[in-house]
Design a protein around this nucleic acid. Structure first.
Length: 154
DNA sequence: GCCAACGTTGGC
DNA sequence: GCCAACGTTGGC
């Protein structure tokens, strides 16, 4: 089982939006970056765990824990010319993009801000903390995962 | 709103 | 296949 971090702008879709869904489950669409897509398509499996990360907001940071409940399948929003995620190169045979379904397990007892993540030496290897990091889906090591869970629980 | 960093596009 | 131009991300 793998661990992940998935970014979303709370103004577009927040952890509370996910919490409000039936069964706290929704699809994670709109990924339009090849590296992020390939992580979803090739490596993300049912049962994997992922942090819900709020980006581009007042207090960027990790706010919740999700479980992958459906592996990658076609993201048809790429076909919808009215969607923000429309991709003119997408075809019905090959939309080029995939999404997964996630279920919110729980919000963290307290959010762990980007600032706090940066202050821990044990986490300096996280891709999230590298300069210019723009990946919207990235792997998290078991070590980093456990460390952050521990932080949020104390 | 600024801007650094990075990814993508497309002409050659 | 190079690389300049452009678009996007995301912290500040």
């Amino acid at each position: 089982m793998k661990h992940w971090l998935m970014k979303s702008e709370p103004s577009a879709y927040s952890v509370d939006d996910l919490a409000a869904q039936p069964n706290k489950t929704d699809h994670w669409d709109g990924i339009r970056n090849y590296q992020a897509r390939n992580f979803m398509r090739d490596d993300m499996k049912i049962g994997d765990l992922a942090f819900f990360y709020h980006s581009s907001c007042a207090e960027p940071g990790i706010v919740g824990i999700m479980e992958v409940v459906r592996a990658a399948y076609s993201d048809d929003s790429a076909l919808d010319s009215k969607s923000d995620y429309f991709d003119p190169k997408a075809t019905a045979e090959n939309t080029r993009w995939v999404m997964v379904d996630v279920r919110l397990k729980r919000k963290l007892k307290r959010p762990i801000s980007l600032q706090e993540l940066k202050s821990h030496k044990a986490l300096t290897g996280m891709p999230l903390l590298q300069r210019g990091a723009r990946l919207s889906i990235m792997p998290v090591t078991k070590k980093q995962w456990d460390y952050i869970i521990k932080l949020s629980d104390r």
